[in-house]
Amino acid sequence: MSSMQASHDELLDLVAVYALGALGAEEARIASMHLAVCTECRAEYDALRPAADAVAYAADDRLDLVDCPRIKREIMRAIRPPQRSAIFVASTVAALAAALVFAFIAVSAERKAAETDRTIAALVGPGARQYDVSAGEIVKSGDHIYLVMAKLAPLPAGRVYQAWTLAPGAKTMAPNVTFSPNSQGFVLVTLTEAAQNVGVVAVSVEPSGGSQAPTTKPLFVRPLT
């Protein structure tokens, strides 16, 4: 009886650490399974969890008066709907966002989510310019160029799509990233070349691993003018 008592006190302690969020996976599983069946521990958890949540507020003094409005401006800009005639981009991005969100449920979700949110914000932001191509859109936003491909055909094994860029005044295409669309033909690609170094964007089908120069006729060659 006394040993059972001791072990239940340990469970109550464990539940407190669980409320704080400082348990590893195995112990968290033990705590949550026990919480499902023990009213005493559940009551302890319900009392301590708000106290643990309150701890967060101790950190609310780190944003200074200069940065707070600046960050707010950036966030408000990111959520504003596009004011240009960018219906295609908007609807493509919405569909793509849904596809990406869905894909990320399977992959390690949270880390990519921040990245995706930022990219989508850039795509629909007020500074973005879009260029129609056969398979979707090229979007230039800030320093970056994005390919928002909405209807790419699936490729046989051993083949990938590859992006190419031509610098203003240059004579030969420079190789850029390779990529494959998802099963719906969607893919969102961020080119590795800074926007100011790109005058023309092309995409071709290449062997896996990519090529140094296009080996097939490009799907499109789009000057960004």
Binding site: A56, D60, R62, L63, I71, K72, M76
Partner: peptide, 21 residues
């Protein structure tokens, strides 16, 4: 969007503070 802005005004410091710490 105005409600969203009010949420940032209310909780921006909290969110940033946690992340910064």
């Amino acid at each position: 969007a105005a409600a969203f802005e009010a949420l940032y005004d209310g909780f921006g410091r909290l969110v940033y503070g946690i992340a910064s710490r």
